[in-house]
Design a protein around this nucleic acid. Sequence first.
DNA 1: TGACCGTATGTCAGAACTGACATACACTAG
DNA 2: CTAGTGTATGTCAGTTCTGACATACGGTCA
Lengths: 104, 104
Amino acid sequence: MRASKKAKLTGRGWKVGDTKEFLDLSSEEAALIELRLKLAEGLKARRKRKRLTQHDLAAAVQSSQSRVAKMESGDPTVSIDLLMRSLIALGASRRDLARIIAPR
Amino acid sequence: MRASKKAKLTGRGWKVGDTKEFLDLSSEEAALIELRLKLAEGLKARRKRKRLTQHDLAAAVQSSQSRVAKMESGDPTVSIDLLMRSLIALGASRRDLARIIAPR
DNA sequence: TGACCGTATGTCAGAACTGACATACACTAG
DNA sequence: CTAGTGTATGTCAGTTCTGACATACGGTCA
């Protein structure tokens, strides 16, 4: 059911959707992507500050180097859950997370 | 692989784990749970402020009333992704999200 | 040059999450 | 009581995400 949107995009051309779909994609979906990117940046920065390799971080969160690379690149196959878990594993507090999401 | 932890908890009694596992559970995992709860509260508050029913919200995010109920109760089967998506669907900005995560 | 290190990208089987449904509960109004 | 409305809880098939692996890329050093 959620695949319908993807299908619409990957299909050849632009099947004209209604306004709701358009708004959904351009504003809400965009907001989610921005959020993911903020977390990705925050994670990379935090990891580097601690002078850890992606491999090190992977071990700390029981994941793999390749997934860490995807996390930091904002890859859409990475969940926000995983980003949050990783940040927390690097010692980020809720306030730290808040600052990462909405930098002042 | 991740189910091993759950198994350890649901099994009868407390099989003694090593320190790393203990710390993982008590601090990092707890932080994640707290985060989920903050988002759950934030979602419920925001929905009520808009005078929407769980059913309305479900329609807005293309989910179901039952899942919305689980979201708001901090049910562990609900991902942070879904909570974030729902909050954004209710018009929350990144700054709003930050405030929900780390209230001042 | 070649060996090494850190990072990036693609793939896939297995694990986790999802919407939907059924059903139960709590409350209110008739 | 009965009906209606909103919320809670359990289940499950289908979708999405995950760790692991292979492999490629870029830089450094000898």
